[in-house]
Protein backbone atom coordinates (compact mmCIF):
# COMPACT_ATOMS: atom_id res chain seq x y z
CA UNK A 1 0.00 0.00 0.00
CA UNK A 2 1.40 3.33 -0.96
CA UNK A 3 1.82 5.63 1.95
CA UNK A 4 0.57 9.13 1.78
CA UNK A 5 3.60 11.24 2.48
CA UNK A 6 1.59 14.01 4.06
CA UNK A 7 0.00 11.69 6.55
CA UNK A 8 1.27 11.90 10.04
CA UNK A 9 2.71 8.60 11.23
CA UNK A 10 0.11 7.36 13.68
CA UNK A 11 2.04 4.98 15.82
CA UNK A 12 5.52 4.20 16.85
CA UNK A 13 6.65 0.89 15.46
CA UNK A 14 7.88 -1.50 18.05
CA UNK A 15 11.12 -3.30 17.26
CA UNK A 16 10.53 -6.88 16.33
CA UNK A 17 12.17 -9.69 18.17
CA UNK A 18 12.86 -11.15 14.76
CA UNK A 19 15.86 -8.88 14.48
CA UNK A 20 17.59 -11.84 16.13
CA UNK A 21 19.01 -9.70 18.86
CA UNK A 22 17.63 -10.56 22.22
CA UNK A 23 17.31 -7.88 24.77
CA UNK A 24 18.35 -8.29 28.33
CA UNK A 25 16.08 -5.58 29.64
CA UNK A 26 12.39 -6.13 29.96
CA UNK A 27 11.47 -2.97 28.15
CA UNK A 28 9.88 -1.96 24.95
CA UNK A 29 12.15 -0.84 22.17
CA UNK A 30 10.91 1.28 19.32
CA UNK A 31 12.19 1.88 15.85
CA UNK A 32 12.33 5.63 15.31
CA UNK A 33 10.80 6.98 12.10
CA UNK A 34 13.49 8.62 9.98
CA UNK A 35 13.92 10.98 7.07
CA UNK A 36 17.13 10.50 5.11
CA UNK A 37 18.36 12.97 2.56
CA UNK A 38 21.59 13.50 0.71
CA UNK A 39 23.32 16.31 -1.10
CA UNK A 40 26.72 16.52 -2.77
CA UNK A 41 28.68 16.76 0.44
CA UNK A 42 26.58 15.19 3.22
CA UNK A 43 24.14 12.52 4.18
CA UNK A 44 21.46 13.70 6.61
CA UNK A 45 19.43 11.56 8.98
CA UNK A 46 16.53 12.91 11.04
CA UNK A 47 14.98 10.57 13.60
CA UNK A 48 11.87 11.12 15.69
CA UNK A 49 12.67 10.15 19.25
CA UNK A 50 10.19 11.86 21.53
CA UNK A 51 11.10 11.57 25.19
CA UNK A 52 14.82 11.12 24.59
CA UNK A 53 17.31 13.66 25.86
CA UNK A 54 20.95 14.20 24.94
CA UNK A 55 22.19 12.20 27.91
CA UNK A 56 20.48 9.03 26.83
CA UNK A 57 21.27 9.15 23.12
CA UNK A 58 24.14 7.26 21.59
CA UNK A 59 25.17 7.38 17.95
CA UNK A 60 27.97 5.13 16.85
CA UNK A 61 29.61 4.20 13.58
CA UNK A 62 31.52 0.98 13.28
CA UNK A 63 32.89 0.15 9.86
CA UNK A 64 29.88 1.04 7.75
CA UNK A 65 27.22 0.34 10.36
CA UNK A 66 25.57 3.32 11.98
CA UNK A 67 23.69 2.61 15.20
CA UNK A 68 21.29 4.95 16.94
CA UNK A 69 20.30 4.20 20.51
CA UNK A 70 18.36 6.16 23.05
CA UNK A 71 17.29 5.43 26.56
CA UNK A 72 14.05 7.04 27.59
CA UNK A 73 12.78 7.55 31.10
CA UNK A 74 9.45 6.06 32.06
CA UNK A 75 6.45 8.29 32.48
CA UNK A 76 5.35 8.44 36.06
CA UNK A 77 3.19 10.93 37.84
CA UNK A 78 2.82 10.77 41.57
CA UNK A 79 -0.72 10.00 42.64
CA UNK A 80 -1.93 9.41 39.11
CA UNK A 81 -2.98 6.21 37.44
CA UNK A 82 -2.99 5.52 33.71
CA UNK A 83 -6.53 5.80 32.44
CA UNK A 84 -5.88 5.72 28.74
CA UNK A 85 -2.75 4.94 26.76
CA UNK A 86 -2.20 5.32 23.07
CA UNK A 87 1.54 5.12 22.96
CA UNK A 88 4.15 3.15 24.76
CA UNK A 89 7.29 4.56 26.25
CA UNK A 90 10.56 2.76 25.74
CA UNK A 91 14.00 2.91 24.26
CA UNK A 92 14.89 3.54 20.65
CA UNK A 93 17.16 1.48 18.49
CA UNK A 94 17.88 1.51 14.79
CA UNK A 95 20.76 0.34 12.66
CA UNK A 96 21.73 1.53 9.19
CA UNK A 97 24.31 0.27 6.78
CA UNK A 98 25.98 3.12 4.97
CA UNK A 99 26.89 2.39 1.42
CA UNK A 100 29.20 5.32 1.11
CA UNK A 101 32.44 6.28 2.78
CA UNK A 102 31.87 8.83 5.53
CA UNK A 103 34.35 11.18 7.13
CA UNK A 104 33.89 9.86 10.66
CA UNK A 105 35.77 12.67 12.35
CA UNK A 106 33.33 15.26 11.20
CA UNK A 107 30.04 13.52 12.00
CA UNK A 108 27.69 15.81 13.87
CA UNK A 109 24.64 14.83 15.87
CA UNK A 110 22.24 17.00 17.77
CA UNK A 111 18.97 16.52 19.51
CA UNK A 112 16.27 19.12 19.57
CA UNK A 113 12.64 18.75 20.59
CA UNK A 114 12.87 14.98 20.40
CA UNK A 115 14.35 14.92 16.91
CA UNK A 116 17.86 13.61 16.40
CA UNK A 117 19.67 15.16 13.43
CA UNK A 118 22.83 13.54 12.18
CA UNK A 119 25.06 15.03 9.51
CA UNK A 120 27.43 12.53 7.92
CA UNK A 121 29.97 14.30 5.71
CA UNK A 122 31.02 12.19 2.77
CA UNK A 123 34.66 11.24 2.63
CA UNK A 124 36.64 13.14 0.02
CA UNK A 125 37.03 10.21 -2.34
CA UNK A 126 33.32 9.48 -2.23
CA UNK A 127 32.23 12.94 -3.35
CA UNK A 128 31.03 13.14 -6.86
CA UNK A 129 33.63 14.63 -9.09
CA UNK A 130 33.09 15.48 -12.66
CA UNK A 131 35.85 14.17 -14.81
CA UNK A 132 36.54 16.08 -17.95
CA UNK A 133 36.68 13.88 -20.97
CA UNK A 134 39.36 14.71 -23.43
CA UNK A 135 38.85 14.45 -27.08
CA UNK A 136 41.13 11.66 -28.20
Amino acid sequence: MEENIRTVTPEKAEAREASRVERTKDRKTFVPAVDITEDDSNLYIFADMPGADEKGVNVSLENDVLTIDAQVEDQKFEGHGVSYAEYGVGDYHRVFTLNEAVDRDRIEARLKNGVLSIVLPKAEEAKTRSIPIKVG
Binding site: F77, G79, G81
Partner: peptide, 8 residues
Protein backbone atom coordinates in the same frame (compact mmCIF):
# COMPACT_ATOMS: atom_id res chain seq x y z
CA UNK B 1 -0.72 13.15 18.17
CA UNK B 2 -0.95 9.99 20.31
CA UNK B 3 -1.94 10.69 23.89
CA UNK B 4 -1.53 9.07 27.27
CA UNK B 5 -3.90 10.08 30.02
CA UNK B 6 -3.10 9.93 33.72
CA UNK B 7 -5.85 10.66 36.21
CA UNK B 8 -5.52 11.79 39.76
Amino acid sequence: PPMNVFSG
